[in-house]
């Protein structure tokens, strides 16, 4: 199901990149692309069925080790 996300990311890229390029906002374009690329890679991995780590167990683990709970 995360395929929806992947399609959406492509849609956002197709709509937004020409708009930014036309204005000549290259700095904005670079940051925008970095963020979108991170999203694209993560949702591609999810779509391929890769089990990504969950955040809250990682934070729980970190805090338990820090405070020796």
């Amino acid at each position: 199901m995360p395929g929806i996300l992947l399609a959406f990311i492509v849609l956002v890229a197709v709509l937004e990149i020409p708009r930014l390029a036309a204005k000549g906002w290259w700095r904005e374009l670079v940051v925008f692309s970095l963020f979108l690329a991170a999203g694209f890679i993560l949702s591609l991995l999810l779509t391929l069925g890769v089990q990504l780590p969950y955040i809250s167990p990682a934070i729980t683990h970190m805090i338990e080790r820090l405070f020796g709970l």
Partner: peptide, 29 residues
């Protein structure tokens, strides 16, 4: 946008939203 010194924050709203959705899917097991 302020950290990177951009001229507008609007282009970043959707990419940040997408990252938020992804973090939401991975937030709790």
């Amino acid at each position: 946008a302020q950290v990177f010194g951009l001229r507008s924050y609007r282009p970043l709203v959707l990419p940040a939203g997408i990252l938020m959705v992804l973090l939401c899917l991975q937030a709790f097991s």
